[in-house]
C-alpha cells in the first residue's frame, strides 16, 4: 500500500469513529429520550415541560443542530491534520 493510500485509510478510519459516536448521540436523544424512555423522563419536569415531551418537541432538534456543527469542527481539524484542507 502506498504512503498516500495509508494516509487516506487512516483518515477514513478516524472519520468513521466520529460518525459512530455522533450517530449514537443522535439515536439517544431522538429514539431514546423522545420515544423509548419518554414515560420515565416525563416524571421529571423542566419548568412547565415534562422532560420526555420536551425532548421530542424541542431538545432533540437543538441537539441535532449542535451535532452537525461539532462534526464540522472535528472534520475541519481532521482535514488539516492529514493535509486535506482545501484552502
Amino acid at each position: 500500500m502506498s504512503e498516500k493510500q495509508k494516509k487516506a485509510t487512516a483518515y477514513w478510519k478516524e472519520n468513521l469513529r466520529y460518525l459512530v459516536i455522533l450517530l449514537f448521540i443522535w439515536f439517544l436523544v431522538s429514539y431514546g429520550a423522545g420515544i423509548l424512555f419518554k414515560d420515565e423522563l416525563n416524571t421529571i419536569r423542566l419548568g412547565g415541560f415534562k422532560l420526555g415531551f420536551w425532548f421530542v418537541q424541542q431538545g432533540a432538534i437543538y441537539v441535532f443542530v449542535i451535532l452537525i456543527f461539532v462534526y464540522v469542527r472535528l472534520m475541519n481539524k481532521l482535514d488539516k491534520k492529514y493535509g486535506y484542507n482545501e484552502d
Binding site: 460518525l19 450517530l23 431522538s30 423522545g34 418537541q57 432533540a60 432538534i61 452537525i68 462534526y71 464540522v72
Partner: peptide, 19 residues
C-alpha cells in the same frame, strides 16, 4: 405528543445528510 414524528423526523434527517 404524536406530532413528534414530524418534528424529529423532518429535522433528524439533516444529521444523516450532513454526516
Amino acid at each position: 405528543y404524536d406530532g413528534a414524528v414530524y418534528l424529529m423526523g423532518w429535522t433528524g434527517g439533516y444529521v444523516l445528510l450532513a454526516l
